[in-house]
Design a protein around this nucleic acid. Structure first.
Lengths: 190, 190
DNA sequence: AATCAACTTGAATGTTCATTCAATATTTGT
DNA sequence: ACAAATATTGAATGAACATTCAAGTTGATT
């Protein structure tokens, strides 16, 4: 019995990259064949169909994001400082010329009622992210405070992911985050 | 010379509805023909191509939104009260079973580098909305305060448009808005 | 009632789409 | 070395796609 000869992880990353950049509907399997160098048969044998490939690509991508997030949330003195750094890095991402929002957020908005399974899959991953913030905020907050703050952080992240498309938005975004998330103890500007 | 026999406004509304619900790429012209009852030739003569139809549909939709927004922002005692009502109505929208975020936000995230003209068109409309909030906030705020508050409101609106997909999110959203927009003077819950 | 530009019609076009499958190649167990 | 199991290949398939256009219809103007 012959084993897979292509690196599944590498294929998932190429596919995720295409789906992220172009969106689910605008990414043709043809594009995937080109980006991965694989032939139709191989892809369809390994992933079933386009939805299956998308689901695995998104899952793989999100898993990595969650690992990175967990690591970031513990590597600073306080959770607040960590969250500040995360938000600032999102703003900086949005200043790059090839800015493309966030794979999960884009997918959440693009998928329609015809793909309920994928929609639920995306929602579940976004909820996982929020519960990670919640878990860490619980260390220094009551349950209800932590929940409200976690939701507020998610709201601001979503906001940045959309607002980021406006060019020249860096300063406006920073001011808005300072105003909306005062409990993050932003260093004063002098 | 025979005049157009279909109601252009009605066609644009049907088209906008489809584009909004399904997204630009997942909406086929076939769908548009069915929803409007028109034949290919009529649509293509009137709007040039799919992009042209999309642009006009989005433009028409946004124009109506701007009119409604302007009206809402002036019909309450204070701007703050008006914004509160707008945000609450967005949350209530998100509780409906057929919730579908916001046409502009969805379009902003779906369109890719291959449709720069449409992208810019969407960005411009979103900026118009922000400047409307800014204009009204200027009445009771300094320029820099008004700008930060307008950006913060946009951030929260974008957030609600994404967060709204989570079921059972109404209370979490309300708490997060109270936390992130304290200057809106929310009535206390008792 | 004749004219003619503007509009509508809908079958036809050529392209691109996701997916299939018979043939071929490769790896592993015996 | 052979057999069995599994991967890869890539041309082929049929459906769906955006768009075109020649022929027909409409209604205001002459």
């Amino acid at each position: 019995m012959a084993r897979a000869q292509f690196d599944k992880e590498q294929v998932l990353e190429s596919a995720a990259n295409a789906f992220w950049r172009l969106g689910y509907n605008a990414t043709s399997m043809q594009t995937v064949f080109e980006k991965t160098g694989l032939k139709p048969g191989s892809i369809f044998l390994a992933f079933g169909n386009k939805e299956g490939l998308f689901k695995e690509a998104l899952g793989h991508n999100t898993e990595q994001s969650l690992i990175k997030l967990e690591s970031t949330l513990t590597q600073y003195e306080t959770v607040e400082e960590a969250i500040r750094h995360i938000l600032v890095s999102f703003i900086e991402e949005s200043c790059q010329s090839n800015y493309c929002s966030c794979f999960l957020v884009k997918s959440q908005l693009e998928l329609s009622d015809h793909q309920v399974e994928l929609q639920d899959y995306v929602s579940e991953r976004l909820r996982k992210i929020e519960s990670l913030y919640f878990k860490h905020l619980l260390k220094t907050n009551s349950e209800s405070e932590a929940q409200a703050k976690a939701s507020s952080v998610m709201l601001h992240i979503f906001g940045v992911r959309v607002y980021g498309y406006h060019s020249q938005s860096k300063n406006q975004l920073m001011d808005a985050l300072r105003l909306g998330l005062p409990w993050l103890a932003w260093p004063s500007v002098h």
